[in-house]
Amino acid sequence: MATDQLKSLFEQLKEDPTIDLPGDFESQIEQNTELRTEWNSIAPEIQTQRNIDAALRKSFSKLKSEIKVAKLSPGFHSTLLKKAEASRFSSGSSSFGSKALWIGLPVAALLLGGLFFNIMVMNVTDVNTTETLAMLNEEPAEKSSRVIESEIPEHPESSETQSKDLPVPETRAKSTSASKKMQAAAKSEPSKTQLPSAAGTESETLAAEKTLEGDFQIPQVASIAPKADESKTEIEKLFAELKKNPTNALIRAKLKKLLTANNDEAGLKRLAEIKP
């Protein structure tokens, strides 16, 4: 064995004294005078390490054979599977919780956003309705907003729930049509326009009663009724003047115009009977 090879072996022994050595290692060292001194300085430590290593190998071999007798308890694997199932369930529920959180948060955000949007739309609709009604000059703005809030049904047979579910434009249309009906009722029966129940037909009466329950339309009816009265008074006044002066074409023309505007057939017939 060359000196370089022996030197390399020395280095390996210093790092790990337990490595396998060639059978002729010692004789090789004996023959190599250059390395013999160095070997003599490290040999005791290496030899001690090798002896301890051998003792440990032997002792652990005995220990191993003794300890191998110990077996896992019969219920080991069933307990292990139960634990695995329990841990899987707990980890599954926590993952479900986190998933629910990730899904729930956006849904909650959407719901809140929708609610906010709805409030905004309600406000805008409220303003639009107010403006429209103000333009129509049918009823005060305060009343129109209360219509939207209370969602009064036009017909008594429609349930409150249904009326609440109605979209806003429909409600607006219904309130307008209801007021028109009230106007027509007021025109047809001017002497009874102080009360909505005097509207004429049964359905109209019920609608007017319902309107009263909702604290609605009373100002509207009251505001329309004097107009019809005024018209009738004006007609009667003109008839009286025409009777006094049947040749007055101006009065006749004015009366005819009023009666035609009111679609008053009886009045027109009465006018025709007054000969100039």
Binding site: T48, N51, I52, A55, L56, K58
Partner: peptide, 30 residues
């Protein structure tokens, strides 16, 4: 390298205990 150096040290630590316990008799004696 760390494994080897630590094992060397561990063997040194065990030597006296092994001798006291009479383990490795005939192997440990120099």
């Amino acid at each position: 390298g760390t494994v080897k150096s630590r094992l060397n040290h561990a063997r040194k630590l065990l030597r006296s205990s092994l001798e006291e316990a009479g383990i490795g008799e005939g192997l440990l004696g120099n």
